[in-house]
Design a protein around this nucleic acid. Structure first.
Lengths: 343, 343
DNA sequence: TAAATAAATGCAATCGTTTGCGCAATCCAT
DNA sequence: ATGGATTGCGCAAACGATTGCATTTATTTA
């Protein structure tokens, strides 16, 4: 064998004067090969650092056994939450002997479909996916399921499919956060949320609403806005602060938006948290960089990724019944820092 | 064929009463098959949405053709710069029909070796890697090269190997940044760098030294410190500011460190940038979150990733000679914000 | 009309592994 | 000694695709 090509069972067989079948069995330590021969072959293989060709193994087993490659689709890569999730998936996957193939949908439906096709072709054993924002048809996902490729959703869930999923406890996370604002003395709490077409937006809003209700505060529609990024936050917040009865606290759907609010509020000369409290959602890099540091709900992306990988591998290996839709909820945790008052 | 299994050429051949060879040739549009038969077969394949089994294709071609999977090793996943690089690699790879298999070394040599082995087994066509911090032996990389798997380094380069690489222009980036500090009136500029064992640390220091020299400023050793993270920065900066001749500017090896300096300096009551200027390196999320926003050197991770993927694919596809070590330098860009004065 | 040429297809080996089955050789009990 | 286990190994067919070569049939040419 030339240097470029790797040693195969055939090479071992030729060298040792046995058949390929014998080599195969010896290497899998089959008792149908005599102990001595087994050891000779195993040692030879070890010394010449032979390792099996995964491609060939796969082809042979393609009928029965799935591959060990997990497809992961993320809407974005340069994004704290998605990075954390990727990190969680990678950790669980590598610990259990799986590879991850990563693709970015860029929030595009077409790209998502392409990626699914490519992954199907490349025989991933399953896919972990957060749906793109503009996805409204689900045939590509159904195809995958029909082809026997299990799916696990995270973050953005496909509503039309009863598939396995991991979500964070948006409702309780928000409810606790808003409760914290109330118990530290805030009375007029603004809510900046994502468009209500997204499930997480609804859940967070419900948490907000129920926290107000729990403490007997009225829900003021003028304090509720659709706003989920910094630019928008900087645009709409000045008007909020000029209202006759200005808010004394803000709850934002993510840290980025919270930072936008913070910068405007500070610029307008209000003191944070004495005059205005702010709470975000994510607990990413940003939270400890701003001044004062941001009180926020920790989203635990790594845990989400880990659970998603755990479910997928369970489905693949048959620990979980294939037709079962496993649904897990990751608990959040309120991290109190400088943008809210202490009780 | 049952629903779980995908259709193969054999299925088409049986159904249409031809041989598998004919199907293969017809699908590759070979002129040795009559036009009509070709069309019949192609249409049948299309209608039953047949697609080739990549595993089998690969096995068949393993002698000549490489796979289309690129291995990517990152030290960390939850990290702005590495996310950007991943993003760049993903973009270039997917545009050119390649998949990426991502693994995290966690800055561990052992893990790095494991990953390389796993990737070799899984027949990636090449690997893009930033070496782990504690890697000091390079056999695993040499093995890969010997096995014909091209390597492209980014960020942390393997000094013992004359391999292809993409680095950012640390020297010029730092030189320009420090020049900016000087031309905006700073005279005593502190330098917080990474340990000099790392090449990037040396390059950045040289940039700092040469900028001082260019403007006729003396290099004061007491202003040079090994410090590359926030915690350390917060620990050592107070003493710096209590020096008899305190610094009037800081250049930090990364944004995180710069943020640490900023928070201390502000806490001690100095005004930024009027009394103290600060400049970072990265231009990540943090840079626009702190107050005032951080002047920093943009590292252009996405571009680094893109170039790395471009080199690797060139090597794989033979556009670049296999034995050639392609070395590219990505230009940086100084982003002036609020932590430095304007000229 | 026979032979040479061209066109269309099939056979079978190949990639590297796995595995059901069969064949020899050895063993033990009758 | 004879027959039935037992042991140890090889043959060959898969997995799904590609491809050099042989084969068949149709067409042309002398």
């Amino acid at each position: 064998m030339d240097d470029k090509r790797h040693m195969t069972m055939k090479d071992i067989a030729r060298e040792l004067g046995v058949s390929v079948a014998t080599v195969s069995r010896a290497l899998s330590d089959s008792p149908s090969i005599s102990r001595e021969r087994r050891q000779v072959i195993q040692q030879y293989a070890r010394e010449h650092n032979y390792f099996p060709n995964v491609i060939a193994e796969q082809l042979r087993h393609s009928r029965r056994n799935p591959s060990h490659a997990i497809g992961v689709i993320v809407p974005e890569l340069v994004h704290y939450y998605f990075s954390s999730i990727l990190d969680g998936i990678e950790g669980e996957a590598s610990a259990r002997g799986y590879q991850i193939i990563v693709a970015k949908s860029n929030e595009s439906y077409e790209r998502e479909v392409q990626i699914c096709e490519a992954m199907l072709k490349n025989k991933v054993c399953g896919i972990i996916v957060s749906q793109a924002k503009d996805t409204e048809h689900y045939e590509h996902f159904k195809h995958l399921e029909a082809a026997g490729v299990p799916l696990v959703f995270y973050d953005r869930i496909c509503p039309a499919l009863n598939a396995s999923r991991v979500v964070v406890d948006d409702y309780m996370g928000t409810l606790n956060a808003v409760s914290h604002l109330i118990t530290t003395g805030c009375k007029r709490i603004a809510f900046y949320g994502a468009p209500m077409s997204m499930q997480i937006a609804k859940n967070r809003f419900n948490g907000y609403r129920d926290a107000l209700y729990k403490y007997g505060l009225a829900l003021d529609e003028s304090l509720v806005r659709i706003c989920d990024n910094r630019a928008d936050a900087e645009r709409i917040t000045p008007a909020m602060m000029r209202m006759e009865q200005r808010p004394d606290a803000f709850f934002a759907v993510n840290d980025e938006t919270a930072i936008g609010i913070l910068s405007v509020v500070k610029r307008l000369g209000f003191s944070v948290p004495d005059e205005v409290s702010i709470c975000g959602f994510t607990n990413g890099f940003r939270a400890t960089v701003c001044d004062p540091m941001l009180t926020t709900v920790e989203q635990r992306g790594t845990q989400v990724g880990k659970e998603a990988a755990d479910i997928l591998i369970g489905l693949v290996e048959g620990t979980l019944p294939a037709d079962h839709a496993e649904k897990r909820i990751v608990k959040t945790r309120l991290v109190v820092r400088g943008t809210t008052r202490h009780p």
